[in-house]
């Protein structure tokens, strides 16, 4: 058993970090999709032909949940916590750094998914009024996505660095 950091082993910290990213990303996506979908459902109730144009807007906040999931899987793969060659001897301090590396995705995805849902709900109003502007309406929630993607990139780069340093 390797040294613990604040009472937890490195593997514990890494698993908490990956789990944290998956959970917060998932919660954010669920809330964001609910916000956008409730407005989209109202529009489709009155004008069923707009369903196809509105579906991408309602589905857009789901990506943050996927980024959280990707982060959790990367933690398992990079730090050998998954598969046949599982290693649970990661140093406590190293595991804590993995936990910290997961935070950008966890928090950014949680917050941006909710705001993307709200932006999508507002953008759905554009489609309700002018169906031909559905392309323009997609741009606004897509802008919010940028910051979730940047957070994912930061997290992946941090984990690559940690993986090189501690896993060889």
């Amino acid at each position: 058993m390797t040294d613990a950091f604040w009472g937890l082993s490195g593997a514990d910290w890494a698993l908490i970090g990956g789990g944290f990213a998956a959970i917060l990303g998932g919660i954010g996506s669920a809330i964001g999709i609910t916000i956008a979908s409730s407005v989209v459902s109202g529009i489709v109730t009155e004008d069923g032909e707009k369903f196809g144009k509105l579906l991408p807007i309602a589905a857009m906040p789901s990506t943050q949940g996927i980024y959280g999931f990707i982060t959790a899987v990367l933690v398992l793969i990079f730090f050998k916590l998954f598969g046949a060659d599982v290693q649970i001897d990661l140093a406590g301090a190293a595991g804590f750094k993995v936990f910290l590396a997961c935070q950008p995705v966890a928090w950014l995805c949680f917050v941006t998914a909710i705001y993307q849902g709200r932006t999508g709900a507002a953008a759905a109003g554009i489609v309700a009024r002018r169906g031909e502007d559905s392309g323009k309406a997609l741009i606004f929630p897509a802008l919010v996505e940028t910051y979730a993607v940047l957070a994912l990139i930061v997290t992946v780069l941090m984990m690559l660095g940690l993986s090189t340093a501690y896993m060889g």
């Binding site: 409730s38 407005v39 109730t45 004008d47």
Partner: peptide, 19 residues
Amino acid sequence: IRDDICYGFAVGRVRVLEG
């Protein structure tokens, strides 16, 4: 967030009906 979810469906209908 609570208001967005609570009134979301009605807001969607309004976006069409106000036209």
